[in-house]
């Protein structure tokens, strides 16, 4: 299994498209950091309009923790698209190149093949998020320093003591890995039905965009749908920035995401085992 996963990882990191995600993430993070470094106070005064009427907040408001939170908030919506770029190619790409039939003819079980491909996709997802964490948190702390974190919610401003922040980021990035693995499993699922990687990549993007719109729009009709959308549960990395953390709600979301992963992967294994591979 490990040998199969290593081979799949070799294939993933041999493709130039794999590095598009790393370059895209690095570019976005560096641009956001530059923008906030040059004119962060303007952004702050926009989000703090209501607070500024009653309170004056002094100190290092624009610090590394705040910059990282802002980056995560904007970027974690877009990272699924980069995950789909690789995960959607895992089976469909092989089918497109005509190597899937060759692979299936080897003395390895089809389930083992699927699991090794999914394990390699998960490693890629984790690598992407570790890279993102290093840049968005590590570099932001180096550039902006540390202080208390301001978390702007729709109905309140929460201030977290700087001594109480770092562990929350570990929790949030861990949760984000789970959320992005769910996206990977969706792209992987769609990949098993396609003969070309473009289809599953675009389909995954479309599903994520549609569900994200439904998740973020505050309309009563859509609100009743939200508990059933995995994109809503993907946002619960923010649960680590509650005080106190509502672990029940975070675990519920994590459980729903794990259930999605298991369901999607089971369908992939079921379909792939029965599949008549013609290409």
């Amino acid at each position: 299994m490990w040998q199969l996963t290593s081979i799949e990882l070799f294939k993933i990191f041999k493709k130039p498209r794999t590095y598009i995600s790393f370059v895209a993430i690095a570019s976005i993070i560096l641009l956001v950091q530059l923008a906030l470094y040059v004119d962060g106070e303007t952004y702050l005064s926009f989000v703090m309009q209501s607070v500024n009427e009653t309170f004056s907040i002094e100190g290092k408001r624009l610090n590394g923790y705040f910059v990282c939170y802002t980056i995560l908030q904007t970027l974690l919506v877009h990272v699924p698209l980069l995950i789909a770029l690789v995960a959607g190619d895992m089976l469909a790409g092989e089918a497109n190149m005509g190597t899937l039939r060759l692979l299936a003819s080897k003395p390895i079980s089809r389930s083992g093949l699927v699991l090794s491909k999914f394990a390699a996709t998960t490693v890629y997802t984790i690598a992407l998020l570790v890279f993102m964490a290093a840049l968005s948190l590590g570099l932001s702390i180096l550039l902006f320093g540390t202080s208390d974190l301001m978390v702007f919610k729709s109905d309140m401003l929460l201030i977290l003591s700087q001594k109480d922040v770092l562990w929350r980021y570990f929790g949030a990035f861990g949760f984000a890995m789970l959320a992005m693995t769910t996206v990977a499993s969706l792209a992987f699922l769609l990949s098993v039905f396609a003969e070309n990687s473009i289809g599953p990549i675009i389909s995954t993007m479309s599903i994520i965009i549609l569900f994200t719109i439904l998740t973020t729009m505050d309309i009563p009709l859509f609100n009743s749908l939200k508990p059933f959308l995995f994109t809503n549960h993907m946002l619960n990395w923010k649960g680590f920035f509650e005080d106190p953390v509502d672990y029940r709600e975070v675990l519920k979301s994590a459980g729903i995401l794990v259930a999605h992963i298991v369901l999607f992967l089971s369908v992939v294994i079921f379909v792939f085992r029965k599949k008549d591979i013609l290409s």
Binding site: V47, S50, V51, E53, T54, Q73, V77, F152, K153, S154, D155, M156, L157, T215, T216, M217, D218, P220, N223, S224, K226, P227, N232, H233, L235, N236, K238, G239, E249, S253
Partner: peptide, 21 residues
């Protein structure tokens, strides 16, 4: 005395616990 505070949910991008209504 405090004044009203409100940030649009689209900007806050919050997880919905299903009690919005």
């Amino acid at each position: 005395n405090t004044k009203e505070y409100k940030l649009p949910k689209g900007i806050a991008m919050e997880y919905d616990k299903g009690n919005s209504g």
